[in-house]
Write a protein that binds this DNA or RNA. Sequence first.
RNA 1: CGGGGAGUAGCGCAGCCUGGCAGCGCACCUGCCUUGGGAGCAGGGGGUCGGCGGUUCAAAUCCGCCCUCCCCGACCA
Length: 477
Amino acid sequence: MPLEHDKKTEFAEWYSEVVKKAEIVDNRTPVKGANVLLPNGYGIWENIQKILDRELKATGHNNYYFPMFIPEELLNQEAEHFSGFAPEVAWITHVGNRKLERKVGLRPTSEAIMYSMFSLWIRAHTDLPLKVNQWCNIVRWDTKETKVLLRDREFLWHEGHTAHATYEEAEEQVKESMRIYEKLFDDLALSYIILKRPKHDTFPGADYSVAYDAPLPDGRVLQIGTTHNLGQNFSKAFDVKFQKPDGDHDYVYQTSYGISTRIIAAILSFHGDNKGALIPPKVALTQVIIIPIYFKNKHEIVKEAANKVLETLKNAGIRARADLRDNYTSGWKFNQYELLGVPLRLEIGPRDIEKNQVVLVRRDNGEKITVPQDQLVKKVKDTLDAIEETLRQKAWKRLEESISEAKTFEEIEKIYNEKRGIIRTNWCGNPECADVLKEKLSVEIRGTKLNEEEEPFHSCVVCGKEAKQVVYVASAY
RNA sequence: CGGGGAGUAGCGCAGCCUGGCAGCGCACCUGCCUUGGGAGCAGGGGGUCGGCGGUUCAAAUCCGCCCUCCCCGACCA
């Protein structure tokens, strides 16, 4: 077994191991929580960027780049927003030996800097909607323990920010962002539950937040994406006004949404196994690895055949690579590329050349498929699709299995101790009851179903008073 | 921030108690040979033993101070 730790029984250790051995991240950097994304990891991000960027542009977003420096007074302009992020903002206080009169923060998110510019750009309803996207790095200097990709001090993300003339348009924008995200998650074969966050867990300064929680194998959930309806909270704070057709003035209605490199942690956790990573085909740096099977005196023939197959696949738009090195045995390569998570392996040796065929081996189930050369491209594409579909089905099955129901505190406690997962239960709406859950069981009220009023089926799981909502509770990263 | 553990080659570790040439496995380089599930043989390269100071003829080893990382807890958008 290539990995020393078992995914099922030692998930935390397995995760740390797979992140490093699958060459996703090298965290041997001088600064805790700020790591190197290696080609096999950054490649996932680049492909996510391509997918998202295409959709964002198709829906009228434009890419911008804003400064990463945010003066304190600007960040402070929306009080709730500031107090939400203040504890983890990194500040520049000195330049050389000279102390700055006003310290400058490194963006923990870009609302403040962006909206201060929006107020300069937006004059009238004819300037709306404004749909801004930015790809950038973010700094959130957690003093507590960091964890590769799950909680880094510096990470990459995309952030969409829009301004609209009406609340209804902003509502529509929230939905559009969700459609874009759900399409991406589908490409990544991730499953999730969509929740409207409770008040106390709403993005600082937002009217409400919608988030995607993905069930990880250890029973905890990971937020893989989020979208906020900001209402007029920020436009009032940053004075983003526009003139309406009737001549009146109003503050714009805003939304923001984001997906970060954290999602790579979800990809690894969902699809990896004890052999290593398994990168979903749509985002894998290498989709097909070609391994020549050499035999004495037949090196050149095999090498030539492998190169020919490589060309064919590349010309068909498939991200293929051939490992022609002869100082590693084919067995070693099989294991290596399984560790790296390449979804499909193609073997070609003297026997195959004679029969004018190749052998495909699926990373997800190890199945070997013999393919005539003239069907090569089609079979490879079909198999990549089949792998993705298998991963997707497994993912949704996991979500289904992770949800359970509890009426009483004792039941939650029991479920928490046995398998965790997502627990459907009832809540009175009092934040104190949420605190009790967090303190006693370290589980959080993650939210309510978004477009579905669910009738409480019991009294509040903590205090026993009348429940107002059906909520979903989980232990989160 | 509190409690515990650990820093020796890229990785994993031994050596420390009892001071005396800095080692082992994997990885890496060269050559031969091999290749359909992690081959073999031979040769080779790589070290501020976390840092600073002290004791000593002599420190990876003993003493002091500091730094970093990991685990548990607290805290945390």
